[in-house]
Design a binder for these strands. Sequence first.
DNA 1: CCTTGAACTCAAGTTCACTTCAACTTGAAC
DNA 2: GTTCAAGTTGAAGTGAACTTGAGTTCAAGG
Lengths: 165, 165
Amino acid sequence: MDARDLLPMCEITQRSGFAASAIRYYEAEGLIEAHRSGGGQRRFERSVLRRLAFIRAASNVGLTIEEIRDELGRLPGNRTPTKADWQRISRHWGRRLDEQIAALQRLKGGLDGCIGCGCLSLRSCAFSNPGDVHGEDGAGARLLPDSLRRPHPTRRGAGRRGSAS
Amino acid sequence: MDARDLLPMCEITQRSGFAASAIRYYEAEGLIEAHRSGGGQRRFERSVLRRLAFIRAASNVGLTIEEIRDELGRLPGNRTPTKADWQRISRHWGRRLDEQIAALQRLKGGLDGCIGCGCLSLRSCAFSNPGDVHGEDGAGARLLPDSLRRPHPTRRGAGRRGSAS
DNA sequence: CCTTGAACTCAAGTTCACTTCAACTTGAAC
DNA sequence: GTTCAAGTTGAAGTGAACTTGAGTTCAAGG
């Protein structure tokens, strides 16, 4: 690859919308790669822009950095996603989004059922107790799946929401 | 109020499902109040359980502690929510949930539209760029509202997801 | 050569909603 | 009177995903 095909940091930040610090962070985390100029400055292949678009999309779906790294790493040859990869992955994300939507709808349904009852009971009101905390882990659809429960800092939990840095 | 009507910490933790540390945190944050025993231990009025149920429900909808404090504070007389309060509030939350659902559906729609295109363009692909970052703040529905965008740590952003402590 | 702005590194800071820890004290039962 | 679970405090830690800051260097133009 010709050195003239490599992009400097300013180009990447402008075209991806990510801050330089975020780009450096992603490189440190192994999500993207960079070449170096003679003086030690980063020079990026054009394909990095595509990976960054992928990262943004993934993070909008709520994937964590680690999950994104896995997802990128599962691509055969660790390459930038092709059209076929993207189709497979987006089906996967679609399911995830479907789950999140269904969960919010269950919560909404519980809320609608509660309007008028005014109970807000810790034991029986599904809205204030979507996990049925006191129910000894009973069966039945839970109102909120883990992906939408509060990702508890110390116990392991799932992701955040999408970015628009 | 008779001292025999006041509940000790263990009762509150068992019946609310919150950890003692969380209860203390909520008190420090001004979401709930506590009396003290002669020796300095917390003694709670029964109504605190109701406030805690409210807190759990609110946090499941994605409100932050600050928003919950505001919401509780807006109650006339700063009292525990009554049935009527709850109806008003739950309509408000219903709208919020509707927004979140609609946002996820837009994102899902964008994803469906993208399956097969394989573009993932930083400029035009709505999925990888739901905020239209390069669009000079153009009009039109945004795929993700602020409540679902990644709440950026340092810049001010909106909430987290629901809890099941 | 000088200036200017972009880039570099590395450590430390940020936010949120709590938890954990250490070192004590209370309160109720026996 | 002894025991021991339950409770207290304040400070510090947690995790994710970056940002900020300090101090230094690079690259390009004039």
